[in-house]
Design a protein around this nucleic acid. Structure first.
Length: 320
DNA sequence: TACCAGGTAAAAA
DNA sequence: TTTTTACATGGT
């Protein structure tokens, strides 16, 4: 017995490419034929949704879940899948802007249909952002893997992100063994406790005006300007927001749009100006291009011979 | 071995 | 008020 829901997404969209980009940083090689196995909480119930894209236009995403779902659960599944796949984002206006720029036009053409995969909740996005502060993506990935392993909940072979309540009930020692610093463990505990207590509602930020949400986020302990921008961009899905102080953003904007290497935050913003109101999305495309090209290089060296993805990119440790 | 990675708050100057 | 510093892990 299974339920299959069909979710329409604003086209163009390429789920397989979006998955490939999202996993470009991951040390584990996952071959899953363009299917996203997504643990989701529908009300109090944890289910595994298998998400795939059916061919054709308009873009339809199929979400398959074992067992029966109630009407409210179906509605929630629809909302969450739409959120993760960013179904509401229409890429066409961005492509229109990109086509007027020689480099961005080429990158956007090559990565047509790419959208950032978004975490199912703003809380999860906030935790991800906390773990990614300062350390490399690979190091942060290991920390999150440990968090999932120790505190996550298993469902059909996948692990769901721990709830605020579960994180709030964990100990400093437990979080430290996941590789978090004392300080980040404190931030994470404080955030989780406040969210679990209902004192902080990150999900409610969805409808807020951008600057108000930014102000609120930076008022939380451990949330600086970089973290706030990252959450606004990917957690709340504001396509113009870009963490311009971000090392990766400064590298790729300098490399692809500027004269060469890493630039300062202000210069990065200046170089991204042609893509208002999609500056964050533009930066994401450059990061993805950079990362996928790098991965392609590795594959070629290893004899795997994965598809060419354009000009070789300078070395770095970038991710989306 | 050092040094750098999608930074931040708190201490020191 | 502005400038340093500690911090965790993984790759080079």
């Amino acid at each position: 017995m299974a339920e299959t829901l069909r979710i329409e997404a604003a086209g163009p969209y390429d789920l397989r490419l979006s998955l490939e980009a999202a996993r470009a940083f991951s040390p584990e090689e996952r071959r899953d034929e363009g299917i996203l196995r997504l643990p989701l909480r529908l009300g109090g119930r944890l289910v595994l949704a298998e998400l795939r894209q059916t061919s054709g236009t308009p873009v339809i995403l199929e979400a398959r879940v074992r067992g029966r779902l109630g009407e409210a659960e179906k509605k929630e599944l629809h909302r969450l899948v739409g959120r993760v796949a960013w179904a509401g984002l229409d890429l066409r206006p961005f492509y229109c802007l990109a086509s007027r720029h020689p480099v961005m036009g080429e990158v956007a053409g090559r990565l047509r249909g790419l959208k950032p995969l978004r975490p199912a909740t703003v809380f999860e996005m906030a935790v991800i952002a906390l773990t990614e502060q300062q350390i490399s993506m690979r190091a942060a990935y290991q920390v999150r893997r440990m968090l999932l392993e120790k505190l996550g909940e298993r469902v059909d072979g996948e692990t769901a992100f721990p709830t605020p309540r579960r994180l709030a009930s964990s100990s400093m020692a437990e979080l430290r063994t996941c590789g978090l610093s004392e300080r980040k463990a404190q931030y994470l505990l404080e955030l989780s406790r406040r969210v679990a207590a209902g004192e902080v509602d990150l999900e409610a930020l969805e409808g807020w005006e951008e600057e108000k949400a930014r102000e609120y986020l930076t008022s939380l302990r451990g949330f600086g300007p970089w973290t706030a921008s990252y959450i606004l961009a990917r957690g709340l899905g504001i396509p113009d927001v870009v963490p311009s102080e971000d090392l990766g953003v400064r590298t790729v904007t300098g490399t692809y749009l500027g004269g060469g290497g890493r630039v300062g935050a202000e210069e990065a913003l200046r170089l991204l100006r042609p893509f208002v109101p999609f500056r964050g999305l533009a930066a994401f495309y450059l990061l993805a291009q950079h990362r996928l090209a790098e991965q392609g290089d590795r594959g070629a060296r290893g004899g795997g011979g994965s598809a060419e993805r354009g000009p070789a990119a300078p070395k770095g440790n970038l991710d989306i």
